[in-house]
């Protein structure tokens, strides 16, 4: 039978290494959190928002007021998009929802509405649509597997326009990025 022959100093040294490792991990985690939640003020096209810093910002155009994508070397890039579409005085929320799902149904592969409901965001009436679709690299020489993408849209009626705020992420990343998107959503002013 063998017994431990570590000295008291050695034991303190081991404990110190463990504590230092934990502190380093905690600091890294806090730093990562601060980097991820870092934002920059977006103010253009009548839209103000706190957009994620370090994300790729696309040039707005057409109905797109704002679009940012997370930097990622591969796979689906998580994105926030704010678009608008014109309305008439008679247009109702349900009509906008129908037109949107018709458009998504044509554009997105295996598009499915998972849920839809009327909600309130920052005291404004809105409509929430949760959906999923499949994104595949159109270049079939790439061996990437198709990705299941989850989407979440918030639709606001704003005078003669409908403003649609969209969050899309791969199914694996969706839940992890939802809180940050909701912070972005609540920062929106238009």
């Amino acid at each position: 039978m063998k017994t431990s022959n570590l000295s008291l100093g050695d034991r303190y040294a081991e404990i110190a290494v463990i504590v230092l490792t934990l502190v380093a991990l905690l600091a890294g985690w806090l730093y990562m959190g601060s980097v991820e939640s870092r934002t920059f003020p977006f103010d253009a096209n009548g839209l103000k928002a706190s957009a994620p810093a370090g994300w790729i910002q696309s040039e707005p155009g057409g109905d797109v007021l704002m679009q940012v994508r997370q930097r990622a070397s591969a796979g689906f890039q998580t994105e926030y998009t704010v678009t608008q579409q014109p309305l008439t005085a008679e247009s109702g929320m349900n009509e906008v929802v129908s037109l949107l799902t018709i458009r998504y149904g044509q554009e997105l592969t295996a598009f499915r509405v998972l849920s839809q409901q009327a909600v309130t965001v920052n005291g404004r009436e809105a409509y929430e649509i949760s959906y999923a679709y499949v994104e595949a690299n159109p270049n079939i020489s790439h061996l990437d597997l198709p990705v299941v993408v989850r989407g979440l849209d918030y639709i606001f009626l704003n005078g003669e326009k409908a403003v649609i705020v969209t969050y899309r992420a791969s199914d694996a990343e969706y839940q992890g990025g939802l809180a940050a998107f909701l912070r972005f959503l609540h920062s929106l002013q238009f």
Partner: peptide, 16 residues
């Protein structure tokens, strides 16, 4: 022609 089905009676039809 696009066809929308009722998933819930208090929600807009879902076009599939």
């Amino acid at each position: 022609l696009a066809v929308g089905l009722v998933q819930s009676e208090d929600k807009p039809a879902v076009f599939s």
